[in-house]
Each structure stands twice: as structure tokens, then as C-alpha cells.
Simulated scan of single mutants.
Amino acid sequence: MASLQGLQERRRKRLRFQLRRKSGGRPRLSVFRSSKNIHVQVIDDARGITLASASTLEKTVREAGKTGADIAAATVIGKLVAERAVKAGVKEVVFDRGSYLYHGRVKALAEAAREGGLSF
């Protein structure tokens, strides 16, 4: 029987493979969700660099009184990363949800990033 971690790793690899095939050279909006925080990065895989990032661990987000474990914080992070990505000259990305379902915090982050100016 496969372990839960092994299944998540297979799901993550399968998704990244599909994204690489369909990306058309666009940067990847990668999400990492833990039980207490959420992190997001806009990554240019061709050059191997991070173009923009945001996290609930940043001082400005923590001072606003947001915890990292709710949908409201994910919405704030989605808008923040979209603002930073547009400032860096990125308008179109592919959404990499990792091994997480498109539901809850991940969905809220994606919708906020779309509202902030990113298209995917």
C-alpha cells in the first residue's frame, strides 16, 4: 500500500508534467499550503528564478492581524502576489496547485490573483 506522502508526490509530479507541456513558456504560480500558513511564488522555470512571491509570514500581513490558516488570509496573499507579479511584468501564468485540491484556501488565492490582474 502506498503512503499518503507518496501519493501526494505522484500527484504533484503528474500535475507539473502537464503544466510543463501546456505552459507555452509562461511562468508558474506555485502554491504551498501548510496548516498554519500559505506561500505562493511566481517562478520562471526556463531561467530558474522566482519573479515574485508572497507569504502569510511577511511582516506586513502579520501586522494586519491575519492568520495564515483561513480564506481571508489566502485572499490577501493572492492579491499581493498578483500586484508584485504585474509590477515585475508578468500578466499570464499557469496555476500550479501542487498536490492540493482546488478548494478552500487554494481556490480563494487563485480567485484573488485573477482579480489582481493575473490571467490563467
Rank of each mutant, 00 (worst) to 15 (best):
34 S>M: 02
37 N>Y: 05
64 A>M: 14
1 M>W: 05
36 K>P: 04
105 R>H: 01
36 K>R: 03
76 V>N: 07
100 Y>L: 02
3 S>A: 12
47 R>P: 11
69 A>Y: 06
115 E>S: 02
84 R>P: 08
61 V>T: 11
13 K>R: 00
32 F>Y: 09
102 Y>V: 00
54 A>Q: 08
22 K>Q: 13
58 E>D: 11
65 G>T: 15
3 S>I: 12
75 T>E: 07
82 A>N: 09
22 K>T: 06
107 K>A: 15
31 V>W: 03
35 S>N: 15
58 E>F: 13
92 E>F: 12
48 G>D: 06
62 R>A: 15
97 R>T: 08
98 G>D: 09
84 R>E: 02
10 R>E: 10
8 Q>T: 03
64 A>R: 15
46 A>H: 00
16 R>E: 15
89 G>M: 02
90 V>W: 03
14 R>V: 10
27 P>Q: 11
84 R>Q: 04
48 G>K: 10
36 K>Y: 02
104 G>P: 11
75 T>D: 04
60 T>R: 15
101 L>R: 13
42 V>W: 04
40 V>N: 03
118 L>G: 01
6 G>H: 12
6 G>E: 15
82 A>M: 08
45 D>T: 03
116 G>P: 05
118 L>M: 02
109 L>N: 00
17 F>W: 04
104 G>A: 11
98 G>Q: 11
76 V>M: 09
44 D>K: 00
70 D>S: 07
39 H>N: 13
31 V>M: 03
19 L>F: 15
115 E>L: 02
104 G>D: 08
63 E>M: 13
101 L>V: 08
3 S>W: 11
34 S>N: 04
69 A>G: 02
115 E>N: 01
41 Q>D: 06
12 R>C: 06
1 M>R: 15
29 L>K: 01
37 N>T: 10
88 A>G: 07
45 D>H: 05
19 L>D: 15
14 R>W: 09
86 V>G: 07
104 G>K: 10
44 D>T: 05
3 S>N: 14
100 Y>M: 01
11 R>V: 06
55 S>I: 11
57 L>M: 15
61 V>H: 10
25 G>M: 00
78 G>Y: 01
50 T>Y: 02
11 R>N: 07
114 R>D: 00
99 S>C: 06
88 A>P: 08
107 K>M: 12
36 K>C: 03
9 E>K: 13
105 R>S: 00
66 K>F: 14
16 R>T: 11
21 R>D: 11
111 E>D: 13
96 D>E: 14
33 R>K: 13
54 A>C: 09
58 E>Q: 14
65 G>M: 09
115 E>A: 00
81 V>L: 14
118 L>N: 00
26 R>H: 06
97 R>P: 06
87 K>V: 04
112 A>H: 02
30 S>I: 14
25 G>L: 00
19 L>Q: 14
28 R>T: 05
54 A>D: 06
114 R>N: 02
71 I>C: 01
87 K>I: 02
84 R>A: 03
46 A>M: 04
119 S>F: 04
70 D>Q: 04
70 D>P: 06
81 V>N: 14
105 R>Q: 00
54 A>S: 12
68 G>T: 15
7 L>D: 05
82 A>I: 05
101 L>K: 13
100 Y>F: 07
113 A>F: 01
107 K>I: 11
16 R>C: 13
33 R>M: 10
68 G>N: 11
41 Q>Y: 06
